[in-house]
Write a protein that binds this DNA or RNA. Structure first.
Lengths: 359, 359
DNA sequence: GTGAAAGCGCTAACAC
DNA sequence: GTGTTAGCGCTTTCAC
């Protein structure tokens, strides 16, 4: 009844069973308990003889032993897993988030599991259920459509849950400081603005893109503040909330150009998606149109450095956000409405090129 | 000894224990075995009364019961986990791979775990060990520095392992058809080439970027073939293996320009990284320099559609590659040298814009 | 110094 | 039709 293993390590040619502490125990003629202690570096505390310990360690090494974390997790009621859900990997922000999450998780000895949900609420629910079933110890939600039911699910399972860049009241959140970031960006554009030229708004900075969501509202406030701070309200142009989609912002920018007869002195674009449309509209323009224009985007993509004009971008500080998120896990705030705000950074495209895709 | 749960579901205010089948069994006055069968939809086969089944299902629903997959995995010797390691998320190709992997894994009822190793061999080893310790049932390696020891590790643990875009002989591989792809791309460039103008090579298509690796060698063969196929060998320009780094290819392209006094009729760039450098060198040129030039890149990034000139790109077919990879898992080839080659697709930048980052 | 035993949550065989 | 039992691999308490 115990000839499960034919040869030594995994000599069988078929689907090999993994080496267990029982195999090791038999090999060195010790008990599984002793093996376990040694493998967990608890042998000093448990007065195991150095000799026995050495024999066990050697055997483990030889057999390429690796602990079965499912079994350990079951016994200890600690899986060592941390989960994160994102909408998609093919997006700078979430890709960065994933890497920051992994780094932070590994630093804490946790195995990171990140799954994408493709912005589908059904998939979101499904992946959260799966993660919980796999006993993740903590759960981070970024860019999901509807966090509240997922927060509830996690909470019901006794799993701590943090929302990333998703303000809400059913779990603590870490968000980017949209207002402060917009203020920084607008101030920077204002700073680099060409001397007054043109009329009817051509000397102003326009805000383009977005819908009437929380983030956009905050950014608009920051945008306004920058002009007030500088005492140059006359330079503040219209705020065009024309959607995030490239097609929408392309049209909006084109209309603006026709209306002014030129590009305005500055453009503040509300996201990288919106930016795509704006850039497309620029492509159609005479090459000189962009001279002395201050272009900014509330988002970052290193490829922007390949544009034939400079852009000031706002990059969210994903490392800091994840650090704060894990901090919230540790400190376990009772209050689900806790909201930690992280300042983004300004990136000038001249320096952005170094961070582009590597292949 | 069994008052582990104070109130009904998770009424306790502290760190709640999860509902188990024992809780459910007690709640409906049945045995854990019965509960298990019902929850696994095996009650018809086991002659459980529909009534009992219904009661159990209701209780499970009410308690937000979710199976503990660690425990199940332990019992069944099947974790339901599939692992993949990539170097980084912040790269089109690997981001796409991750999504393709997730889709394929989920379709098979597996929970996908993708981890990044930041191209560090130490981390690669560590993450593979962790994945194996968590009992992944299959392991996919993409873009790791040195697959062989990792393949050995997986094999020793009895876990099937597939290398993605990494030819080798210690595990079956799925790779992109570099030769065929290069041939397609070169043929396409040749096709769109302006009538003979310039001399001393200015009317030719140059190959830029790469090192002396397998992939580059294959691509060079394909590149040559395209000219031979068309019987236009006189249009084939020099092959400049000047590295992948932007700085290197930027310098190389600049030298070429000086030498010819203009840009050559066509440029075949060997990767997106190399492309970054080439584009940078173009930025310094007079705007008209790029007129009627055929530019191609063996790689794809949607942002290329924002360049002020058209580019033909080669996109690897990540979905197909992952499908083939899972196919290899299923069919379990005895031969580790198996190599499945997947054809990439040509993408014209005019159409690429739609696939850019969404925010 | 070391081992026996119990139990984490689950499922499958078999008993009734 | 349903319950009892054993055991997946591991850790920890306690006895010797």
């Amino acid at each position: 009844m115990d000839q499960r293993k034919t040869s030594t390590a995994n000599g069988g040619n078929g689907r090999a069973r993994k080496t267990t502490i029982y195999d090791l125990a038999r090999a060195v003629d010790a008990s599984p308990a002793t093996v376990s202690m040694v493998l967990n570096d608890k042998w000093r505390a448990n007065r195991i003889s150095p000799d026995t310990a050495a024999r066990i360690l050697a055997a483990a090494q030889k057999a390429d032993y690796s602990v079965n974390r499912s079994a350990r997790g079951l016994r200890l009621a600690r899986s060592g897993l941390a989960g994160m859900v994102i909408p998609q990997y093919q997006n700078r922000f979430f890709a960065e988030m994933s890497e920051a999450f992994e780094a932070e998780a590994r630093q804490r000895g946790l195995c990171p599991i990140v799954v994408s949900s493709q912005r589908d609420p059904g998939t979101e629910l499904e992946v959260v259920e799966t993660l919980l079933a796999h006993q993740v110890e903590s759960l981070f939600l970024a860019g999901v459509q509807n966090p509240a039911p997922l927060n509830t699910l996690a909470h019901g399972a006794g799993v701590r849950c943090i929302n990333i860049d998703l303000p809400g009241s059913s779990a603590p959140s870490v968000v980017t400081d949209n207002r402060g970031g917009a203020r920084m960006l607008a101030a920077r554009l204002l700073d680099g603005l060409a001397p007054t030229t043109g009329a009817g708004g051509a000397d102003q900075v326009f805000f383009i893109g977005g819908v009437d969501d929380d983030a956009t509202q905050e950014r608009i406030i920051g945008f306004r503040e920058a002009f007030a701070d500088a005492g140059r309200e006359e330079r503040m142009g219209r705020i065009e909330i024309c959607g995030y989609l490239p097609d929408e912002t392309e049209r909006c920018a084109a209309v603006l150009y026709r209306e002014l007869g030129q590009l305005p002195a500055g453009v503040f674009v509300n996201s990288i998606t919106a930016f795509e449309g704006v850039v497309r509209s620029f492509q159609a323009l005479p090459a000189a149109s962009l001279r002395d224009r201050a272009i900014g985007c509330f988002d970052w993509n290193p490829f922007a450095s390949f544009l034939p004009f400079p852009v000031v971008m706002v990059a969210q500080d994903t490392s800091q956000m994840m650090a704060e998120a894990f901090g919230l896990i540790d400190h376990a705030p009772e209050d689900n409405a806790v909201l930690v705000s992280v300042a983004p950074r300004l990136v000038e495209t001249a320096t952005a090129a170094r961070g582009a895709d590597q292949s």
